[in-house]
Nucleic acid binder design. Sequence first.
DNA 1: TTTGTAGTTTATAATGATTCTAAAAAAGTG
DNA 2: CACTTTTTTAGAATCATTATAAACTACAAA
Lengths: 132, 132
Amino acid sequence: MKYIEKLRNSGLRPTKQRLQICEVLFNTDKTFHFTINELEQKIKKQANNKISLATVYNTVHAFEKKGYLKQIPINSSETYFDTNVTDHHHFYDLKEEKLIDLENSDVGPINILKKINGKKIKSVEVLVKLED
Amino acid sequence: MKYIEKLRNSGLRPTKQRLQICEVLFNTDKTFHFTINELEQKIKKQANNKISLATVYNTVHAFEKKGYLKQIPINSSETYFDTNVTDHHHFYDLKEEKLIDLENSDVGPINILKKINGKKIKSVEVLVKLED
DNA sequence: TTTGTAGTTTATAATGATTCTAAAAAAGTG
DNA sequence: CACTTTTTTAGAATCATTATAAACTACAAA
């Protein structure tokens, strides 16, 4: 399995559940956005077995901490995650409640002029809300 | 009272509760960020009387719909609102869990190159996460 | 291989922000 | 004042997320 090393190198034991979640999340060309519940559905369908909801939460948070997933800052009742962890931004279609990737090249360079003493910039995220 | 007209013009009846919330939110030079619970505390202190939590929620949402408040897109357990409804952006200090305004002039112009068919841009919001 | 232990999974309970409900109160209108 | 509509309210309901604690598993050392 190709994810065993990846997990071990991160200090995460390659359990059956984690490997299965890796398959669903990373074994694809395209990156995508998801909520925990969408992920749970996908697991159920794709592998025809169920992983406890608590484990899905734990695993997603573990992967996020290791930098394999990113949370998308958006006001929604559910938290959205992104398997695309490169620097990029999002459209949010308010009517359809759908996220669309914006490549970095789709947004001109962003230059933050203000500095805060003793703090450094960890990330810059742009959310572009769309209406009809 | 200076907020009576404002409310009436928006089609909102100027009730005692709404006027009091207006005082807390808008009767100040500085704009600020708040959660519903922070607002409730502030009301209790400032006016020495209590407005039902449901009313605070209702009012904040009504004011948001009328454009007097903005939600700040950020992943937090509580929703943050902003009395500054002009176009501007935010720092988010991850350690202190605190929001800091970024004036538009603190961020270079943002140019969204990608277009989506039949949709127009409603807002562009930048969140800059800070770490130590 | 067996054993010990630290890490993981699990079902379920708890939490907490937000929304819903339906009855009482207040505002607006004639 | 009488009447209708809007608003407020306390408390219940909802729902995403986190905590709990017992069972299970990976893994290393003997």
